[in-house]
């Protein structure tokens, strides 16, 4: 069980959170093609390495935030606000 650094509350056990999957997905407009819409809904990269993802501290402060996690080691490298761009 990971320890997630909530952007507000600090380190908490993973079971207080909901994982929202890959972050920075751009929702297509309503006139997008069926293919573009399906890719937005269902297709995801599965990187062996750094992954930008969003989490919500559901059983805590209720805030959504972004973090960068290494998918192999689960090391969490950085946390940043929901509306911020990914750090480099």
């Amino acid at each position: 069980m990971m320890r997630i650094p909530c952007i507000v509350c600090g380190l908490r056990d993973e079971n207080e959170f909901t994982c929202g999957g890959t972050s920075h997905l751009v929702r297509p407009a309503i006139d997008a093609s069926d293919r573009d819409w399906a890719e937005y809904l269902f297709f995801r990269d599965n990187p062996k390495g750094l992954h930008h993802e969003r989490w919500r501290h559901t059983q805590g402060c209720g805030q959504w935030f972004n973090l960068v996690r290494h998918t192999l080691t689960h090391e969490i490298l950085t946390v940043y606000a929901m509306t911020e761009s990914p750090p480099r």
Binding site: L11, D13, N15, G60, C61
Partner: peptide, 14 residues
């Protein structure tokens, strides 16, 4: 232990 606030703190947890 992480979810228990210290004296003077208030926080929500599981």
């Amino acid at each position: 232990v992480d979810s228990v606030p210290r004296a003077g703190e208030a926080s929500t947890g599981r």
